[in-house]
């Protein structure tokens, strides 16, 4: 599974980068994003959900989160 590290990237750049990554993969594929605590983890999962992707899990690590999602249909 592909893992995209968005730590150290602020809103909304992190969300736009996640969108660009998702453009390159097939619908139904699972992908992981690493997100900083605070605004990024509050905003990015919600925005990706709004865009039609399926959020599978969100796990807390040391000072960051791992978001696992399945790409939705376009």
């Amino acid at each position: 599974m592909q893992t995209i590290d968005l730590r150290g990237v602020t809103c909304p750049t992190n969300f736009v980068m996640a969108k660009l990554e998702l453009e390159d993969i097939e619908a139904g594929t699972t992908i992981e994003f690493l997100l900083d605590d605070g605004e990024p983890v509050k905003n990015v999962p919600r925005s990706l959900k709004d865009e039609g992707h399926k959020l599978l899990a969100l796990q807390e690590k040391d000072e960051y989160y791992v978001l696992t999602l399945e790409k939705g249909e376009d």
Binding site: D37, V41, K42, P45, A57, L58, Q59, E60, Y65
Partner: peptide
């Protein structure tokens, strides 16, 4: 609920 804890944090 997937127990991610985001609601409590937010």
């Amino acid at each position: 609920c997937i127990s991610c804890g985001l609601c409590a944090k937010s």
